[in-house]
Each structure stands twice: as structure tokens, then as C-alpha cells.
């Protein structure tokens, strides 16, 4: 007779089972701990910041980002992030989408076998190397020559650099959603006599639209969170006036404001000019979280559909 006891295995097995289960569970729960710690650390620093400025919210709208003068004009760094992020997406969205459509619908398998790893290589480029490229090539050889800005480090240079970094993310997420469109849709389209161009633009892309929107949103979140290129090529080291939406002016992004606050200055690295990095970090955390959540919704929609 086979009993329940037999099926449960021996005691040693059972003990190992319980122990490993607990270990694996703890590992999974660790990620929750990380999130809580991020919120706690940012929240605590933000509290210190507001105590430091005596809860005087006027400093958050005083003109320009000048931490040492306790002028923390959020508009300056938020507009900086918007301008730089928009330029990045103006570069990355069409290029990334183009690459994705080409790879998913047109590329012969031999071409695909070469191009795809190269794009993945692009995805692996360290941002600091792209920052170097922005400083030493995009600024002098491209932007200076075409636009002749007053200062060769500016938001356009930073945006173009970040755009390069974001192309592969845009491309790979878009390609995933295009490939997720069932082949039967394409075949049906060809079956009624549609041309390839019609099939791609009228059938495949509309079917993949949720995924493409998700790709765009997630790529935007990356562009806004990207730090090094903005710090290196944006034009200001830690402080600067509000320059509006003109991309040819230097500017500060939220991320660049954070790294510069952490670096401090020779004279000052304490109090609100330092603590503000937690506050900006908290804002950035919620902005990227919001974008990623919206992006995930769109991805989920694709999954449901097919």
C-alpha cells in the first residue's frame, strides 16, 4: 500500500524543502525591501531638505537653479528634463521604430542576423561613453556646425546623445510588439490582395499600436532618467538660470542636478544644497514610476489581445 507518508518523501527531503522554500521566498521579498528602502531614503532626505529650507516653498519657484543661494526653481530642471527628453525621443522614436519595422517585416534573415546583434551592442553602450561622444563629436562636429549656438554644450547636444542611448530600447520593444502580431493577420491581408506596404501600415502597425505606445513611453522614461550624458553635455555644472525651451541654450536636467548636488562644491556640501538631491530623486522616482506603469498597462493590453 502506498500511503500519504510515502508520497511526502523522507524527513530529510521535507526539511530541505521547507528551508529552500523559505530562502527562495526571502530572496523574492528582498525586492520589496529594496523598494521600501528607496522610498524611505528619498523620503527622509526630502524631509531634511524641507526642514532645511524652513518649509519655505517659495524657494521652489524662485528663478533659476542655484542651490547655494537656496533657489530651487523646479521649473528650471523639469523644463530641462522635458527639453532634453523630447529631443532624445525625436531622435530615438523614428529611428528605433524604423529599425524595428525593418527587422520585423522586411529584413532578410541574413541581414537580420547581423543587424540585430549590432543594435544590441548599441544597447550595451555605457552612457558615459556616449557622454564622451556627445562632448567630443556631437557638440563640435554636428551642433556647432549646423546651429552655431552661443555655448557648445547645450540641451540639444545632451538630447541627441541620450537619443542615441534610447534608440535600441525603442527598437527592441517596438520589434517585440510588431512580432507579437499574429501571422494570420498578415496572411489575411495578403489574401485579399493588399500590398506589403498596405499590410504593414494598415494592418500590422495598427494591430501593434498598444505595444508601440508602450515602447515610446518606456523609452521616454529612460530618456528622462538618463544621467551621465545630461551631466556631461548639458552645459551647466550644478547651477544655472531658467533658459526656457530653447534647446540651443545650456540647461540642467533633474538627473544632472542630482549628480551635481552629490558632488557638491569646494565650499558647500551640506544642508539644503545637498539634501535637495533626495527631493529631486523622489520626484524623478515618481515620474519614471508613473511612465513605466502606464507603459506596462499598454504592454498588458497587447498580451490580452493576442
Amino acid at each position: 500500500m502506498l500511503t500519504i507518508e510515502d508520497l511526502q518523501g523522507n524527513r530529510k527531503q521535507r526539511r530541505a524543502e521547507i528551508v529552500t522554500r523559505r530562502i527562495f521566498q526571502a530572496a523574492a521579498l528582498f525586492s520589496i525591501l529594496v523598494s521600501l528602502l528607496i522610498l524611505f531614503v528619498l523620503g527622509q532626505g526630502t524631509w531634511d531638505f524641507f526642514v532645511g529650507i524652513d518649509w519655505n516653498f517659495d524657494v521652489l519657484t524662485d528663478t533659476g537653479w542655484f542651490p547655494r543661494r537656496e533657489r530651487f526653481d523646479l521649473r528650471t530642471i523639469i523644463v530641462g528634463s522635458i527639453v532634453v527628453g523630447s529631443i532624445a525621443m525625436l531622435v530615438a522614436a523614428p529611428l528605433g521604430l524604423g529599425v524595428a519595422i525593418y527587422l520585423a517585416e522586411y529584413a532578410p534573415s541574413k541581414v537580420r542576423a547581423v543587424v540585430k546583434p549590432v543594435i544590441e551592442l548599441l544597447a550595451g553602450l555605457p552612457s558615459v561613453v556616449v557622454g564622451f561622444f556627445a562632448l567630443k563629436f556631437i557638440a563640435p562636429e554636428v551642433v556647432d556646425r549646423i546651429f552655431d549656438p552661443t555655448q557648445s554644450r547645450n540641451m540639444l547636444v545632451a538630447g541627441l546623445g541620450i537619443g542615441i542611448l534610447v534608440i535600441p530600447i525603442m527598437a527592441s520593444l517596438s520589434e517585440d510588439s510588431i512580432s507579437a502580431v499574429p501571422g494570420s493577420l498578415r496572411e489575411a491581408s495578403y489574401g485579399v490582395g493588399a500590398k506589403k506596404v498596405t499590410t504593414v501600415t494598415k494592418i500590422v502597425l495598427p494591430a501593434a499600436i498598444s505595444g508601440l505606445v508602450a515602447a515610446f513611453i518606456i523609452a521616454t522614461s529612460r530618456a528622462i532618467g538618463e544621467t551621465m550624458v545630461a551631466t556631461m553635455a548639458g552645459g551647466y555644472d550644478g547651477s544655472g538660470p531658467y533658459n526656457g525651451f530653447n534647446p540651443l541654450e545650456p540647461g540642467l536636467t533633474m538627473t544632472a542636478a542630482m549628480t551635481n548636488a552629490a558632488g557638491g562644491t569646494d565650499a558647500v556640501k551640506a544642508g539644503p544644497p545637498f539634501d535637495v538631491l533626495f527631493f529631486v530623486g523622489l520626484l524623478l522616482f515618481f515620474i519614471t514610476l508613473g511612465l513605466n506603469t502606464i507603459g506596462a498597462r499598454f504592454v498588458a493590453r497587447v498580451r490580452q489581445k493576442y
Binding site: 542655484f66 555655448q151 557648445s152 544655472g240 545650456p250
Partner: peptide, 17 residues
């Protein structure tokens, strides 16, 4: 502090330019 509305630059070469 100095006035805030000037072209600040981390790079001396850019100031000279």
C-alpha cells in the same frame, strides 16, 4: 553671491570663448 543671470561654465575654455 554674484548675479545669477550670467553664462556660467564649468570649462575655462568656454569662458574665454
Amino acid at each position: 553671491f554674484t548675479r545669477a543671470d550670467y553664462s556660467s561654465s564649468p570649462n575655462d575654455n568656454l569662458i574665454v570663448e
